[in-house]
């Protein structure tokens, strides 16, 4: 059984790196978030490595004694994590750049649709586009229903225009109409 006693110095470093990383990740500027993610990555990598036990000799056969070696498994995990960290950084930077290009800033904004919902909840309103119902009665609805049965030269906008005219004509004759 290898010596599992952790190094207090490394524990502190993990805490500091993760903590500062979290502070930055909670920011709205994407470049700060990228940097924060990097700090968290460092911290977690150190944590992973530390979980393998005390420092040891490089895990290379023939160069060091097996009993002296550091645990190689966390090392393998951290190695791929490092490279993936680069990919993540690059991707987020690309996002930051694109955001800057499009919006003139690299800030992560609140979702506008969610804001709108919150506002609607505060005012207790339901927009008509949500219910998609003008409240027209069945008769009013029926009056606006017609099929495309006419032979018009071509299916163009004029078709709809004439159909609409026909509709209005009908409504007018009935002396009432659906509020539209």
């Amino acid at each position: 059984m290898i010596d599992m006693a952790p190094s207090l110095a490394l524990l502190i470093l993990v805490g500091v790196l993760v903590g500062t990383g979290v502070v930055l990740v909670l920011e709205r500027s994407l470049s700060r978030i990228v940097i924060g993610a990097s700090l968290i990555t460092y911290g977690v990598n150190v944590l992973l490595l530390m979980s393998g036990g005390r420092a040891g000799a490089p895990p290379i056969l023939g160069q060091s004694e097996v009993s002296e070696m550091a645990d190689p498994l966390p090392q393998a995990m951290v190695l791929t994590a490092i490279v993936i960290g680069l990919a993540l950084t690059a991707f987020m930077l690309a996002m930051a750049y694109r955001s800057w290009q499009l919006n003139g800033n690299d800030e992560v904004q609140d979702d506008r649709e969610d804001r709108r919902i919150a506002l609607a909840a505060m005012r207790d309103t339901v927009a008509e586009r949500v219910t998609d119902d003008s409240g027209a009665s069945l008769d009013e609805q029926a009056a606006s229903v017609f099929d495309e049965t006419e032979d018009l030269p071509a299916a163009t906008d004029s078709t709809r225009l004439r159909a609409m005219k026909r509709l209005h004509h009908r409504r007018g004759r009935r002396g009432g109409g659906a509020p539209q």
């Binding site: 524990l11 993990v14 805490g15 993760v18 903590g19 979290v22 502070v23 911290g43 977690v44 944590l47």
Partner: peptide
């Protein structure tokens, strides 16, 4: 943010 960071950082180190 600093409070959240401090809590999370401490927690991760302790959990480690």
């Amino acid at each position: 943010r600093v409070i959240v960071g401090a809590v999370v950082g401490t927690a991760v180190a302790l959990l480690g």
